[in-house]
Design a protein around this nucleic acid. Structure first.
Lengths: 341, 341
DNA sequence: ATTAGCACTCGTAGGATGTGAGTGCTAACA
DNA sequence: TGTTAGCACTCACATCCTACGAGTGCTAAT
């Protein structure tokens, strides 16, 4: 693990090993490198550099007579030092823009679309959570009499989401009366949080109190929504990767995707963190995903946002994945700002 | 293919072959049957019956020296004639009831939950579409001024779903004015369909016309929603089945699940049909799913409903699957009726 | 109609073999 | 000191072979 700097060529060789292994999934040997990338040196020289890289822990031999494979540490070095940032082609960006703008301005669809786009564009699996809001603000309320003693409370919250809840009272409710209450509460409570509304004492009638409590309840639910909407996509691409070809591993991962727990924890991990977060191999805190890499990012504005992640084998096109997740993040953030505004 | 009735014992043998093969996934031989189910006859006798069954097309030999495997036709015979209907245990029913009643009365969550329940309870994959409504009826409308010239149109439709759309006008909009329009339209248009609203001529102001068009647009979208919400679950269970252990087939199927096209077509196929529909092997109209069986049912009331399906290898526990899908269907239908009422 | 006996088939598992890719080492060379 | 050529060595993998045994179909006896 001595790491007193790699020579220029050693870095280059590491880069080649990573690129080649990412592309072929097969251990890469010394002469593959001179043949394909021919830096004008002999195979023996490359081999020399390889043992240096190996003793520094960046590559290893899966078995005696095979080529070298990048280790987790090697991928990290590559991502930090060697990789040059990529950009999506204008075409790809146009496609993504187009996809996002043609769907209804509906949050559920965004997250699904984002998951699909991330998955298809990177060839890996993806998870996207819909934004989690810490303290949503009340924006507008509507009361609709449905049966004699019941009314539907429909509330529009700060982040543009609609929520509904049934209010049941002991006396019959008239629509006119409900309209009055709604008008009054809309005027009084706009912009307040659930806690503030709960403490609001300007209530008079028992009906108003009922509606208020109902509203608080509804907002609480919206706030602490333990499992935010989660969409995933592209798990089939994972199965296409040779490292998952044998069933059991793939099955475990798929099962993990089908529980929402993974996505929730992942959202926690990603949301804390500004920028793109990259976890490689044993850095990934879920044992099921050992041997995988996770590239995560958040989208949304300061106080509310959601998480996105691309999950694949450590052998992934990090440059493309990062570029894609960044771009999708920008698009989502813009749309989100637009919706909240 | 001569089918002049099977003797009692031949039927029994077929039943045993199916049961045993469903449980073990391995071809079942004559002595396995006498050993496990010992109907007091010798292996040779069973073998005799087996050739009869084979020449009738109900079972076949995967290769010379293996046991018998039920053919598609054999499964069909089993399902139609031999299988006795199963019931879910009270415990299981209680669990399902509980799960459905504890979630928010939110359609999106129902479909997801139904998919999960079907998958876990049968150990197969499942698809559930949210209900498709042919002609939704307008129920209530709300207008919220968001910016100077823009307002949010929020509509509650007959089946209890909320939809929103942005209305942009050339003049500034005052909330008071909007309230007036909303009150008037709510009084006039309640219970009408999109087409009827479009033909409605009682409009006066250009604002009212704008809102009306916006509403029609919104309802149209809600109606012909080409891809209804689709949830699936339990694809990981499929991978656990030995017939999908080898990667490629599983990957194809998973990919099919990730497109929504499959679910939409499936909904079409199931919705036409009252009761539980069972498609086995080559009856399944999607080539990707050859070798699979699909058990589908609809839920919902007469004019609006959604589709559910369980998808697994032909080697599935038909009795359990049918019982489960029926019960989940009942629960969903009740909830749906409650929500619409 | 049922059974016991038997020869036959063929998929599967285990073991031997050969091949080749790729290594590490050493010695020569710039 | 860094680079190169040469060479012996090592395994993973594919291929072939063999032995095994589960399960059949057939025939003759009950």
């Amino acid at each position: 693990m001595m790491d007193q700097g790699l020579s220029e060529r050693q870095q280059a060789v590491l880069g080649m090993i990573v690129s080649e292994y990412v592309a072929s999934a097969a251990p890469v040997g010394s002469d593959t490198i001179v043949r394909k990338y021919c830096p004008g040196v002999s195979a023996a020289t490359v081999r020399h550099d390889m043992v240096t890289l190996a003793s520094a822990g960046y590559v290893y031999l899966p078995h005696t007579s095979a080529g070298r494979v990048p280790s987790d540490e090697g991928y990290r070095y590559y991502v930090r030092q060697l990789m040059q940032p990529a950009e999506l082609s204008p075409d790809e960006r146009r496609t993504i823009d187009h996809l996002f703008h043609q769907i209804e301005r509906d949050l559920g669809q965004w997250t699904q679309l984002a998951a699909t786009v991330l998955a298809q564009s990177t060839g890996n699996a993806s998870i996207v959570t819909s934004p989690r809001v810490r303290q949503s603000q009340f924006r507008h309320l509507q009361l609709i009499a449905t049966q004699d003693c019941a009314a539907l409370v429909v509330a529009l919250l700060g982040e543009g989401t609609l929520h509904q809840q049934l209010l049941v009272q002991s006396q019959p409710l008239r629509q006119g009366e409900l309209d009055g209450v709604a008008r009054r509460l809309n005027a009084e409570l706009r912009g307040l949080s659930a806690a503030e509304i709960q403490g609001w004492l300007g209530t008079q009638s028992s009906l108003e109190r009922g509606v208020r409590d109902c509203l608080v309840d509804l907002m609480r639910r919206a706030d602490q929504q333990a499992l935010p909407g989660v969409c995933h996509g592209g798990v089939s691409s994972l199965l296409a990767q040779p490292e998952f070809a044998r069933g059991e591993k793939a099955q475990e991962i798929l099962r993990a995707f089908e529980q929402t727990a993974l996505a929730v924890e992942l959202a926690d991990a990603v949301l804390e963190y500004p920028g793109v977060r990259i976890m490689i191999g044993d850095e990934v805190p879920w044992p099921i995903l050992h041997g995988c890499a996770v590239v995560g990012a958040r989208y949304g504005t300061g106080h509310s946002g959601g998480a996105m992640a691309v999950i694949g084998p450590t052998r992934m096109r990090y440059d493309r994945v990062i570029a894609t997740i960044q771009y999708v993040g920008e698009v989502m953030t813009d749309l989100w700002a637009e919706l909240c505004g």
